[in-house]
Nucleic acid binder design. Structure first.
Lengths: 201, 201
DNA sequence: GTCTATATCCAGATAGAC
DNA sequence: GTCTATCTGGATATAGAC
């Protein structure tokens, strides 16, 4: 009995995962409003009606993905900030890891794109907008704080820390979008190019 | 008689302009597939049917905008390359101008966003895709050439010129997207932050 | 849990009157 | 040139069978 229940639960969880994963792919590729429920269903070789067994609407799927995207991103930021590294090491590490992620982790690039897209577009569900409004500043603040630290110890250039944080993230986002376009062919640029915006020579 | 003809032509041209302009706004804001013909029509206080007097479809409007976007961009690139400046001056000038444009010229930022969007999305008309495929490399090549020149005279850092050009444009695109989100509140970062990726100290 | 209808709705596009 | 119908298609979402 319990056996069956567990099995069913597992199947259910797996389906949700599959749906989320495929939806992420399509949203990143075509945007929310251009992806049809059918796209997701047929890519999974399941009936279109079945999607509605798991989610109320494609907006709900989108919102869940946005939530996950920020969870991961903010968790990574918290982790980074708490590491026993110098400011310079933190930023160097972050850029290196982000570039590596963009190059090798398809989903990571997609999540980035999703956030960029969602933030840029007004055609997204209100709930998702709310998440973005609430969460989107955190990663900027973390980077700005690290930069400020680095300026205190003289290892960073003395431009406005907020502007530097802005350029930090918009550069990464720009690359994420480029990657989304060119897919496999994308090769991340040398991390040193980006770090040279921040570090004192 | 000729008078009337001219008048009519003028009205027609003006309408086309209005439609293009509003369409650009909505496409930048919500993307192609999420903007409805009704959005454009009602923003112009004209009937929805009238749009079809001027354009076959919203895809056609989109494609025309993409064409214009590249025309302007490539024209600017050609102009830049032909100027009697050093490589360093050219890049410094380009970054300065682009940032100024992003900050002050709403339409310029929108055109940027449109290209980024169109390039990133598979949900765009085939004709527009073709334009992008054909035109999108030009601006990258121009910047790469200028950078190569600058490396020869020792004023530029010696990273791979193609990678530098990539970072050049993706950084600008990232900022354009950020601007699209935050609208009026956006203040462009100090141009020197970006130039420091390219110039030898 | 999954599928096959089916209902509903909305946006794209057309036709014809003014 | 512009508007008001209207047609049409496609996509969302639901209902009911297996």
């Amino acid at each position: 009995m319990a056996r069956n229940k567990d099995m069913n639960q597992k199947i259910k969880d797996e389906r949700r995962e599959q749906i989320l994963s495929k939806a992420l792919m399509f949203y990143a590729k075509k945007g929310l409003s251009a992806t049809k429920i059918t796209d997701i269903a047929s890519a999974l070789s399941i009936s279109q009606g079945l999607i509605y067994h798991y989610y109320r609407s494609k907006e709900e799927i989108f919102t869940e993905l946005i939530g996950t995207a920020f969870e991961r991103m903010n968790e990574a930021c918290r982790w980074l900030e708490s590491q026993p590294m110098t400011a310079k090491e933190k930023i160097a590490f972050a850029i290196q890891e982000l570039l590596k992620l963009l190059e090798k982790d398809e989903d990571a690039a997609r999540y980035h794109l999703l956030i960029a897209q969602a933030a840029a577009s007004e055609a997204i569900p209100g709930e998702a907008k709310a998440i973005i409004e609430k969460e989107n500043t955190f990663s900027y603040e973390v980077i700005a704080r690290i930069i400020t630290d680095g300026q205190k110890d003289g290892s960073f250039k003395n431009y406005d820390a907020k502007e530097l944080a802005l350029v930090f993230w918009t550069s990464i986002n720009g690359l994420a979008i480029y990657k989304a376009v060119h897919g496999e062919k994308f090769k991340a640029p040398d991390a040193a190019i980006l770090t040279s915006m921040f570090f004192q020579e």
